[in-house]
């Protein structure tokens, strides 16, 4: 029972790691906040393509079609839901739409 408890504590524990952050210049005149994020689920560390990242810009532009997106904060997080078994990579971008 004790071993099952210890094992389940290990398997069910999840944590988030911040892999990288970047910020572009924040404009003096701040417009509407626009947010976009892309996620990639990884099972047993198998991941063969990172092309999902390309969608993030299109998602930002879609929310601000006739304006410029400035002051973009980009976060790249690695989330472990079940160690070894299931991970998620989350990339989020947040900026201001100036029209």
């Amino acid at each position: 029972m004790k071993y099952i408890l210890i094992l389940s504590m290990f398997i069910l524990s999840s944590c988030t790691h911040m892999a990288s952050v970047s910020q572009t210049s924040i404009p003096a005149k701040k417009g509407n906040v626009v947010k976009a994020e892309v996620k990639n689920n990884i099972i047993f560390f198998f991941n063969f393509s990172n092309d999902y990242v390309n969608e993030i810009n299109e998602k930002l532009i879609a929310q601000c079609p006739n304006g410029s997106v400035k002051g973009i904060l980009t976060k790249h997080e690695n989330i472990t839901y079940f160690p070894i078994i299931f991970h998620q990579i989350k990339i989020s971008a947040e900026g201001y739409c100036n029209e």
Partner: peptide, 11 residues
Amino acid sequence: AIVHHVQVGEV
């Protein structure tokens, strides 16, 4: 395929 760093620039 491992991502190390992502940076989104202004549009």
